[in-house]
């Protein structure tokens, strides 16, 4: 890994591997012991990974990456094609315009910003579904944003140590 440190494709591979791990976490079935309702707490892992990479390496990960990942998630979850693509493009845009400030923030301040971003993500998804007549509003929709914000520090530290270990800049 260290050998490919300053190699651009090596970095891209690492980034996509983390995004794919996020997708696996997004579809992994809950064990049967836990109640179904806990499923509402599942955060949008792919969105969190995307926000991290945009914040850390905005010249490498941007709106096109977010869009591609969104299309893949749409196919995986069987949602309308373009739903996650649109919401990821939007949060990628906001994250790109905020990344310099986000870097200055402490990890918990980042978590609050992330709550807003993930909330936006959920809202856009809900809007599209409700335009298509597929959903009714409930505050359950915001729970993944909350759990995502709480998990952010760990995701952040993990991905940062991965980035430093592979020496990506």
């Amino acid at each position: 890994m260290i050998a490919v440190a300053d190699n651009k494709t090596g970095g891209l591979v690492t980034i996509w591997i983390t995004i794919i791990v996020g997708m696996v976490l997004a579809v992994v079935p809950m064990p049967q012991m836990v109640p179904v309702e806990l499923g509402f707490l599942r955060p949008d892992w792919v969105a969190m990974v995307l926000v991290y990479w945009i914040m850390a390496l905005p010249h490498r990960v941007g709106i096109p990456t977010a869009w591609l990942a969104g299309i893949a998630v749409d196919v995986l979850l069987g949602s309308l094609i373009g739903l996650h693509a649109l919401s990821y493009v939007l949060i990628a845009y906001v994250a790109l315009s905020l990344y310099q400030r986000l870097r200055m923030f402490s990890v918990w301040q980042q978590a609050t910003v992330l709550f807003a971003l993930l909330g936006l993500n959920q809202l856009v998804g809900f809007w599209i579904e409700s335009i298509a007549g597929l959903a009714d509003w409930s505050f359950w929709y915001l729970l993944p944003a909350l759990s995502g914000a709480f998990l952010w520090p760990w995701v952040f530290l993990l991905l940062r140590s991965l980035r430093r270990w592979t020496g990506m800049t």
Binding site: W67, L80, I81, A85
Partner: peptide
């Protein structure tokens, strides 16, 4: 950003109303 956003919206609309995207999906 605008281009890809609009593209996603169009894709969503097409996917909702027609079955053209079933092949790519």
């Amino acid at each position: 950003m605008l281009g890809l956003g609009l593209l996603s919206l169009v894709l969503g609309a097409v996917d909702h109303t027609t079955s053209w995207l079933d092949g790519p999906r």
